[in-house]
Design a protein around this nucleic acid. Structure first.
Lengths: 138, 138
DNA sequence: ATAAACTAATACTAAAATAGTATCAGATAT
DNA sequence: ATATCTGATACTATTTTAGTATTAGTTTAT
């Protein structure tokens, strides 16, 4: 049971890195190097963040990316959803024709609510929280 | 992000089925048929439950399995751990040599605590809870 | 105008996890 | 003796995740 894949992980790290450097274009090569992310992997991840308008990019020499939105408005949930979609349950609970109890299935309901809870937790974590610039909230 | 795999799912379903039928040997074929689980799959899952002493089995004609422990003592966490192991974090956070901040990494801490929370939630759900025989606790 | 430094898009391969199947040996009730 | 069951194990298929490579196009500096 893995909560976060490399896609999301790398994206989050990149965003945190950018949050620390705000207001200047940073190349993907720099981020990759500093954060230990495979460059080619990162270069497939960043355009997703661009499409969702989380970052701005500029092509060409002295190009790169930077944050488009304030780091405290970007949540971990948002990033995870881009790369991993919604939290999925055991799929047969939805699809399996044999599962007659689908509508009343207790486990299904419980798992859904646990998924929601995880989402809410991640929702409270912003990129800014991960920069170490803010004091931890309890 | 999938919370439960088929292994765990099928095992849980089988256990719930058994919990409803307590005190008689039930064949894996019956469980498979009634619960819509691929028979051969289930027959690989049940021995794991046997090893952990969650069920008792008898070979041969009129053989089968039944619950060894009271259904309210068997938790979903216990079953999930058998098949999925502990909740894993994003692994690079542990392994990646480049992650200098490992010890202080805020995200890592947060994910660990979220994982623990999920575990605690599943820990509160017993097989009995899933039989529909008990009234739901809030 | 052209070379170097950059991103965008896409196609591809590799590795790992998950899902499912098949086979054979042995136990037991009848 | 045989049909009905489990145990063990090896195998294949599918899906997801991870990572690489290629080509095209943009922009700055010279």
């Amino acid at each position: 049971m893995k909560l976060i894949t490399k896609n999301s992980d790398y994206a989050i790290r990149a965003l945190v890195y950018l949050a620390k450097k705000k207001n200047e274009f940073v190349s993907s090569a720099e981020i990759a190097k500093k954060e230990g992310i495979p460059l080619m992997f990162l270069r497939r991840v960043l355009p997703e963040l661009l499409k969702r308008k989380i970052i701005v990019s500029k092509e060409g020499v002295k190009g790169g990316v930077f944050l488009r939105r304030a780091s405290q408005t970007i949540t971990v949930t948002e990033v995870i959803k881009i790369f991993q979609g919604d939290i999925q349950l055991s799929q047969c609970m939805f699809r399996n024709a044999f599962c007659i109890n689908r509508k009343t299935c207790v486990l299904r309901k419980k798992i859904i609510s646990i998924g929601k809870m995880v989402e809410r937790k991640f929702d409270k974590i912003t990129i800014r929280d991960l920069t170490g610039k803010t004091k931890e909230k309890r």
